[in-house]
Design a protein around this nucleic acid. Sequence first.
DNA 1: CTTGACCCTCCTGTTGCTGGAGGCCTCAAA
DNA 2: TTTGAGGCCTCCAGCAACAGGAGGGTCAAG
Lengths: 131, 131
Amino acid sequence: MMNVGQAAEASGMSVKTLHYYEEIGLVVPKRQENGYRAYSETDVHKLNFIHRARGLGFTVEACRELLSLYEDRSRASADVKAIAGQHLEEVETKIEELKALRETIKDLHDKCRGDHRPDCPIINGLASTTH
Amino acid sequence: MMNVGQAAEASGMSVKTLHYYEEIGLVVPKRQENGYRAYSETDVHKLNFIHRARGLGFTVEACRELLSLYEDRSRASADVKAIAGQHLEEVETKIEELKALRETIKDLHDKCRGDHRPDCPIINGLASTTH
DNA sequence: CTTGACCCTCCTGTTGCTGGAGGCCTCAAA
DNA sequence: TTTGAGGCCTCCAGCAACAGGAGGGTCAAG
């Protein structure tokens, strides 16, 4: 049994984050007599699981799903794969969007002399109604 | 003079968004006698400017800076270039992060058979303490 | 017995809006 | 002239995913 500070340390997250996860019912520890949170080994495993999933960009709600699949020993791997696949698509879409963005900004950025004179293609680009 | 609905239409943003921009002091229209917002031509130009800058991923605060530079006819283009350059770096960093993310998720995703059996490398990967 | 490190709950703030409630204002049709 | 449909107004709540702080209880060491 760990109290919240130790569980935070062990899982690499902040105390505030663990409070939050309890509040939203993601990982709800038991309580000691004095009211302190008591995290079990299992709780800490879950926290580590979540920590890694969050690090991979899964939303907290996706973590909740993954966690319930993690705990369901009879679940099909297809269910998990579906969630991961969807997330993968989202990430790929985001990358493409950002790449397009980069090109546009880079373009404006490159065209700007960046000197003390007021003429600036970036500003002009943003002000023009084309695009 | 346009009222808020027309200004929203003209700038391609929602009425709520214009309310918000007024609240944060970004574009503050005058008022008509009846209390309705009265957007001038200049206001609408600014809104269009902001709309495009936001579309390029500039934060609202960056928009505020760009806008003040936009209005300052004597500003140096270097000032604008600096903001754009910083944003460019952020975007590039984000792209790299997402690419790394994609590889990791793709890896797990590819390894998972995605059938009805419970064994799943994705879950295993998230549950293992390595990485 | 006191000090300092924990722990607790509750509230606010973050970013950039969106949606809704409750209530005027305005214009055109009946 | 009334009535109905829009629009407009302000204020409040909420989204994600926490962080920070106030104000207070608890615990172990010196």
